Simulated scan of single mutants.
Amino acid sequence: MSETKNRTLVLLRHAKSDWPADVPDHERPLADRGRRDAPAMGRWLREAGFRPDHVLCSTALRTRQTWELVKGELAGTPPTTFEPRVYGATALELLDVIASAPAEAGTTLVIGHNPGLEILALTLSGEVAGRENDHLREKFPTASVAVFAWSGRWDQLAAGSARLVHFVTPHDL
């Protein structure tokens, strides 16, 4: 695969989760708000033209539920890897997971958790000024989407190497 292939990385924080008593963190389900926000973000991805070629999703219940609701709004279902390394991952660990994305995937969607996703998004976008970056620096709420464009192989993605093209929160819709 060419090293200069144009790529799109979509980072999606899981939708708002519930906090039921005596339920381990990994098994927390979505809250009502999360079940409303996730499909809205899926519609936004479809309408904006960001259909993933591959999905890397945390194994946590709330991320799997988020993906089910998002993919219901997309045209078709891309191959999905439920990746245990995404759960609780740091930004550097997420980069390692993304490096394993299929070479043929032009757009990869990662569904995960904070603080790892937010730190990764800030790391990728660097210190570039602009409306999208300023919006991202405010907060990375649940069900938010950060879309990055760059050229290269998935294993070449690094700090400051991508351009943030969209940052959308459920509140923005």
Rank of each mutant, 00 (worst) to 15 (best):
S2K: 12
E3A: 11
T4N: 09
K5F: 15
T8A: 09
V10K: 04
L12I: 12
H14W: 07
K16C: 04
S17G: 12
S17R: 08
D18T: 03
P20L: 12
A21L: 09
A21R: 08
D22N: 11
D22F: 11
P24I: 13
P24A: 11
H26T: 05
E27K: 06
R28G: 01
P29A: 06
L30C: 09
L30R: 10
L30D: 13
A31G: 04
R33P: 00
R33N: 00
R35G: 06
R35Q: 06
A38I: 10
A38K: 12
A38G: 06
P39G: 01
P39A: 05
A40E: 15
G42C: 08
R43W: 05
R43G: 07
L45G: 04
R46V: 01
E47K: 08
G49M: 09
G49H: 09
F50W: 13
R51Y: 05
P52F: 04
H54M: 06
V55N: 10
S58G: 05
A60E: 02
L61A: 10
R62C: 07
T63H: 01
R64M: 09
Q65V: 02
W67G: 07
W67N: 07
L69D: 00
V70D: 05
K71Q: 15
L74Q: 05
A75P: 00
G76K: 01
P78A: 12
P79Y: 12
T81L: 15
E83V: 10
P84I: 11
P84M: 14
T90R: 11
L92Y: 14
E93G: 06
L94K: 03
V97R: 00
V97G: 06
V97W: 01
V97N: 01
I98Y: 00
I98R: 04
A101G: 03
A101R: 01
P102C: 05
E104F: 13
A105E: 03
A105K: 02
T108A: 02
T108N: 02
L109M: 06
V110H: 11
G112N: 05
H113E: 07
H113L: 08
P115L: 01
L117M: 05
I119E: 15
L120P: 01
L120T: 07
L120F: 09
A121W: 00
A121E: 05
L122G: 14
L124D: 07
V128M: 04
V128L: 08
G130P: 03
G130Y: 10
G130T: 10
R131L: 14
E132N: 07
N133K: 14
D134R: 13
D134P: 14
D134F: 11
H135I: 10
H135R: 13
L136K: 09
K139R: 14
P141E: 04
P141C: 09
T142M: 08
T142Q: 08
V145K: 00
V147P: 06
V147F: 08
F148Y: 07
F148W: 07
F148N: 01
F148H: 07
A149W: 09
A149I: 07
A149T: 13
A149M: 12
W150E: 12
S151H: 15
G152W: 07
R153E: 12
R153Q: 10
R153I: 12
W154C: 02
W154M: 05
Q156Y: 01
Q156T: 10
Q156P: 06
L157R: 00
A159N: 04
A159P: 01
G160I: 07
R163V: 07
V165C: 15
H166C: 11
V168D: 04
V168P: 05
T169E: 14
P170M: 05
P170T: 01
D172L: 10
L173G: 03
L173R: 12
